[in-house]
C-alpha cells in the first residue's frame, strides 16, 4: 500500500542558499512519524512546503495518491492535511469555544446569504457546531476556559486550543510544528498522552520537533540535517547513529 504522504526529491533554495536538497520520505497511514533536526536544518521550510505555504523549486508532495504540489492551503486542508504553527495561531479575539466553532468550517456549508437571513439550515448548523465545539472542549480539558478570549490564555492552553481546533476538522494527516515549545514538563507529558490518543483514533501525525523527549511517541523518525535526510528509523536506532550524534546530539 502506498504511503499517505510521500515527499519526493523536494528541493528549495533561498537566494542561492540551498535549504533543502532532494529530500524524500514517506509517512505511512496510522501512527506518529517524527521529523527532527538541529536549528537551520530546513524543517520549517519542508513543513511549509508540505502544508502549502511555500512552493518547492523541484520535487513533488504526494498525498493520498495525488500530487498536491499545486494545491492551495485551504484545498489541502479540505482533503484532510492540516498543520499547526510553531507559535500558536489562535484567533485571539474569539473565545475558546468560538475558535473551535471556526474549526468546523470545512464540515459545514451554509453560504453568506443563508447566514445573513438566519435560515433554518443555518441555525441548525450553528447548533451542531456549538455542540461539537463543547464536546471538543470537554475532550481537551478546555471546558473551564471556554468563554475566555483565546488570546488571553497562557501559551500551553493556546497550543491545546490550536490542537483541538485542528482535530475538530477531522484531519487525516495532522502536522504539528514544534508543539512542545513553550510548554513545561508536565504539559509535555499531557501533550504526549494526547497525541497517542489521537493516533489511536486513527489520525496520522507528522511531528516536527527538536525535543527528544517528545519524539519518543513517534514510531519512525527522520533526521533532517543541512537540507538532507541523514538517518531514519526508530528512536533507539537514531540515537546510535554516528552521523546523528555528531550533527545533532552534539555527543
Amino acid at each position: 500500500m502506498a504511503a499517505l504522504l510521500e515527499v519526493r526529491d523536494v528541493a528549495r533554495s533561498f537566494r542561492g542558499l540551498q535549504v533543502l536538497r532532494d529530500v524524500s520520505f514517506d509517512v505511512e497511514e496510522g501512527g506518529i512519524v517524527g521529523l527532527i533536526g538541529p536549528n537551520g536544518a530546513g524543517k520549517s521550510t519542508l513543513f511549509n512546503i508540505i502544508s502549502g505555504f511555500l512552493a518547492s523549486d523541484r520535487g513533488q508532495v504526494i498525498y493520498a495518491g495525488a500530487d498536491i504540489s499545486g494545491r492551495s492551503v485551504p484545498q489541502r486542508s479540505r482533503a484532510g492535511l492540516v498543520r499547526t504553527f510553531q507559535t500558536p495561531q489562535v484567533f485571539a479575539h474569539l473565545t475558546v469555544l468560538e475558535n473551535l466553532i471556526a474549526g468546523c468550517y470545512k464540515h459545514t456549508n451554509t453560504g453568506v446569504l443563508a447566514n445573513l437571513f438566519a435560515s433554518r439550515r443555518s441555525r441548525s448548523e450553528l447548533h451542531r457546531m456549538h455542540a461539537d465545539a463543547e464536546a471538543a472542549c470537554e475532550k481537551f480539558g478546555l471546558t473551564a476556559v471556554r468563554h475566555r478570549p483565546a488570546g488571553k490564555l497562557p501559551g500551553g492552553q493556546q497550543r491545546l486550543v490550536e490542537l483541538a481546533r485542528a482535530v475538530i476538522g477531522k484531519p487525516r494527516l495532522l502536522c504539528l510544528d514544534e508543539p512542545s515549545s513553550g510548554l513545561n514538563t508536565g504539559e509535555v507529558t499531557g501533550l504526549m498522552a494526547a497525541l497517542e490518543r489521537l493516533a489511536a483514533e486513527g489520525i496520522t501525525i507528522l511531528l516536527v520537533s527538536h525535543d527528544m523527549d517528545l519524539v519518543k511517541v513517534a514510531s519512525v523518525i527522520h533526521v533532517l540535517c543541512f537540507g538532507e535526510i541523514i538517518a531514519r528509523g526508530p528512536l533507539v536506532e537514531i540515537r546510535r547513529d554516528a552521523r546523528v550524534r555528531e550533527a545533532y546530539l552534539g555527543a
Binding site: S51, V73, F91, A92, A102, Y105, K106, G151, G169
Partner: peptide
C-alpha cells in the same frame, strides 16, 4: 485574527 491559521481550517 490569524489569516494563516484560517487558511489551514479550509477557509
Amino acid at each position: 485574527d490569524a489569516p494563516a491559521a484560517a487558511a489551514v481550517l479550509g477557509i
